[in-house]
Amino acid sequence: MLRSGTENGRRSWVLGLGLAITLLGAPAMAGPKAATKAAEKQEAFFGREELARQAKVHEEGCKKGDKGECFNSALAYAQGAGVTKDDARAAALYKKACDKGHLDACNNLGIAYAEGAGVQKDPKQALALFDKSCKAEDAKGCFNVGLAYNAGLGVDKDPVRAGASFEKACAKGHADGCFSLAIAHASGKGLEKNLEKSTALFSKACDAGHMTACNSLGVAYMAGHGVAKDPKRAVSLFEKTCAAELPGGCLNAGIAHRSGSGVAKSPERSREFIQKACDLGLEPACKVLQAAAKAP
């Protein structure tokens, strides 16, 4: 995670500009732990017997040639929702749905190839599937193509092509695409460095519910990067993201309350926000609390 505003002794606001390879698919594709949690939530809501009944309905529908039901059945196997978790079976069903033109299935199959989930790891095949979805005007596919070019997944790193793919995804209203495009403009990596464009894109992504973009927008307002300084607006954004459990937003809110930037100084409120950031797993926030406890 990068930080900004450290020059000349200025405050370090936590800025969410890290681009990890978190490929975006339909539900259940955020990783094994997320898939397990999704299944647990579904079981708590529907009950085990109902999930098993739904899984059978999806499988029967798939056997009849319904691509949507093949996709739903794949999700069930990927999550272990109503059936025993089986990544290989999920991948086979994603392929069946993808071959019939189901773009979310193509994306999820691409992720399976990227991660080696149920199939042999094959980054080039992953990129081909993402590209197939993108060419069919699917925003998630375009976003995943951008991530692939940004990270060198199945292809040489190419920031220019990554930026173009993020731009295509953003134009279709994809919040992660807009956020990634904002990062590219902020850093000048693959695109013209333009803080005004970057800030506008952070705002667009924030309006679509992207909390890391909201936090980054708060940093822009606090530092005056690409927009007129507005500390009060910045604090509002930090507190919004903290309420959504974003640890960087909590830490930034705590820093603001401690220093009185855009809000009245309040050591108590500052500690509350920083404690929450620590509780959410942000190590720098924990270190701030430890340092404060040792201070005379």
Score class of each variant (00 low, 15 high):
Asp87Lys: 12
Leu93Lys: 11
Leu103Cys: 04
Tyr77His: 15
Asp99Ile: 13
Ala74Asn: 01
Ala105Val: 03
Lys100Phe: 09
Lys64Gly: 03
Gly80Cys: 08
Ala74Cys: 04
Ala92His: 06
Leu93Pro: 04
Lys85Phe: 00
Leu103Thr: 06
Gly68Arg: 12
Lys64Arg: 15
Lys85His: 12
Tyr94His: 08
Lys64Trp: 00
Ala90His: 09
Lys63Met: 10
Ala90Arg: 08
Asp104Tyr: 06
Ala81Ser: 15
Asp99Cys: 07
Lys95Met: 05
Cys70Asn: 11
Tyr77Met: 10
Ala81Cys: 06
Asp87Phe: 05
Asn72Leu: 11
Ala88Asp: 06
Asn72Pro: 01
Gly61Gln: 09
His102Ile: 07
Cys70Ile: 12
Cys106Trp: 04
Ala91Gly: 07
Cys70Pro: 04
Ser73Leu: 13
Ala92Trp: 00
Ala78Phe: 08
Gly101Arg: 06
Gly80His: 08
Lys67His: 12
Ser73Trp: 06
Cys98Asn: 14
Cys98Tyr: 12
Lys85Gln: 15
Ala97Gly: 07
Thr84Ser: 09
Phe71Glu: 09
Ala78Met: 13
Thr84Val: 13
Asn72Ser: 15
Arg89Pro: 00
Tyr77Asn: 07
Ala91Ile: 07
Gly68Tyr: 08
His102Arg: 11
Glu69Lys: 15
Leu75His: 01
Ala78Cys: 05
Asn72Val: 02
Val83Leu: 05
Glu60Ser: 10
Gly65Glu: 08
Ala76Thr: 03
Ala97Met: 09
Gly65Thr: 12
Phe71Thr: 06
Lys100Gln: 14
Lys85Met: 03
Thr84Tyr: 00
Lys95Pro: 02
Ala78Leu: 06
Gly68His: 10
Ser73Glu: 13
Asp87Ala: 06
Glu60Asp: 14
Lys85Ala: 15
Cys70Arg: 09
Cys98Arg: 02
Gly61Pro: 11
Lys64Phe: 00
Cys62Phe: 13
Gly80Pro: 00
Glu69Gln: 15
Gly65Leu: 12
Gly80Asp: 07
Cys106Gly: 13
Asp104Gln: 12
Tyr94Ser: 06
Val83Ala: 04
Phe71Arg: 10
Lys64Met: 10
His102Asn: 14
Tyr94Val: 13
Gly101Gln: 07
Gln79Ile: 00
Asp86Lys: 07
Lys95Arg: 14
Glu69Tyr: 05
Gly101Leu: 07
Asp66Arg: 14
Gln79Asp: 08
Gly61Phe: 08
Ala81Lys: 05
Ala81Val: 02
Val83Asp: 10
Val83Phe: 10
Lys95Leu: 14
Asp104Pro: 02
Gly80Trp: 03
Ala78His: 05
Lys63Pro: 00
Asp86Leu: 04
Asp86Gln: 11
Lys100Trp: 01
Arg89Glu: 15
His102Gly: 07
Ser73Ile: 11
Gly82Trp: 06
